[in-house]
Design a protein around this nucleic acid. Sequence first.
DNA 1: CAAGGTACCTGTTAGC
DNA 2: TGCTAACAGGTACCTT
Length: 310
Amino acid sequence: MPELPEVEVVRRGLERWTTGRTIACAEVLHPRSVRRHEAGPADFAARLKGRTMLTPRRRGKYMWIPLDGESGGPPPRNGSGGPGEAMLAHLGMSGQLLVGEPDREREKHLRVRIVFDDGGHDLRFVDQRTFGHLMVTDLVPDAFSAEALVPEPIVHIAADPLEDAFDAETFFRALRRRRTGIKRALLDQSLISGVGNIYADEALWRARLHWARPTDTMTRAEATRVLEAARDVMGAALAVGGTSFDSLYVNVNGESGYFERSLDAYGRRDEPCRRCGTPIRRDEFMNRSSYSCPVCQPRPRRARHQGSGT
DNA sequence: CAAGGTACCTGTTAGC
DNA sequence: TGCTAACAGGTACCTT
């Protein structure tokens, strides 16, 4: 469930609690949580030891913490002397980054624990379903903004609509080139990043577009509408701490956000549309749920991929 | 290359 | 009460 607003809430928490602090040691309790760190859990821990965490960054649903100081691991295969390394994090479906008293009880799904040399709050990666991951990786020049750096594994991830590097015209042209439906395009992190199932449904409801609207004939006005809607709804969610359906998604202090009560479409099956009162419908699509208003968001005559909805 | 389907996970809940 | 099936869904990877 963590999408852009939820990840940004976590990033801000990390900025406050871990910036400038030096790692004493990192402990990997579940290897799957560092599976994308190809050199393995021991190398992951060795690369973190002794490093100082700089200001956390984010693009879409990925966040990373640039690391200062000498790497404790062997030099990277592609040679050292590059722009540096960072710890990259993706929360997946159920990942949490939590800070707290180091001697508190261990969470049931604690996967990685990072201890600092000042003896203060530790940083824990807790992830029930292990779809999330952490890794230490090289920083490389960003494709979207000349002076910026991004972790190498996410160079294919598009800019998100809340960052300066995002270009609406590029996004519009990419939409027109695709032969797919608008929701599938919104969920494609190589076209636009940060949008997941919840905010895709919310943005489409606000823009009054059906999820199967073919993108190759979309007008500039429609594209602008859905983009503005995505920005508005994610900005509003961010302002109240994100969306929490249960205790799975929380900020770094374990607290829930309040946006769930503001959702207009997602999860509101059979409840009245807040614009026209028609019961919200639920369709099966991409092996997940899509919620929309049958009246405000009529199915296009020439839908892209059918889904099994009514 | 693009499009679309599926595996990967585990706790919760609905249904029998 | 206890069991099973469905469900939640982001991303990498695979097939077409």
